[in-house]
Design a protein around this nucleic acid. Sequence first.
DNA 1: TTCTGATCATAG
DNA 2: CTATGATCAGAA
Length: 227
Amino acid sequence: MEPRFLVAPPPDEATLLTRAQSLAGYTLGELAQQAGIVTPTDLRRDKGWVGMLLEMHLGASAGSKPERDFAHLGVELKTIPVDAQGRPLETTFVCVAPLTGNSGVTWQNSHVRHKLARVLWMPVEGDRALPLASRRVGAPLLWSPSPEEEDLLRRDWEELMDMIVLGQVERITARHGEVLQIRPKAANSKALTEGIGERGEPIMTLPRGFYLKKSFTAPLLARHFLL
DNA sequence: TTCTGATCATAG
DNA sequence: CTATGATCAGAA
């Protein structure tokens, strides 16, 4: 799909939130029609389609820049598929896990912390039994981690980064971490990137990414629905 | 049924 | 390959 600007970038956070709230209740088919793009049959070959569609409606920067969606506002946009009860159906990708060049990297200056400092969550019905075009957008949530949430994230990040730095990247599984996990993030299982081996030597290994577990995002969204 | 590892498209 | 956007689908 071709990235296009449907609306101008929002000048401030309040405008962004108002605009996001105005999308609630619409179906993806309606939003696609307004954007002048075709709704795919399913997401198997268009996994980022929903995210790109909402980016267009919210005036996020198009393309693949290594910046936040609303750089001038310091806000990151995340669409999250939810079930009929508003519970997340998938984990949430945060960013690629750096496997080398980590000297001097701390939680405070980490990519994970910066990406999650301010997030606009857009829940979207994600039940695969629902045709893509008839899935509805839910009420958005503009969020920053509470001190407790940030502490959970920091502890997992430190544990996982320790393993990477100590040459144990290939022993990391999705079971590590309470709320933040590391899983493959690649085109396929043949993709390789540089990492650190057991004896500190350079190795080629699968690229990994940080993901938020559903156990983290579920209460975050639930709290929102209670307010 | 849930979760972990694998995968898809596109731009640069 | 890396970064953007994530969901798929087989194994447990």
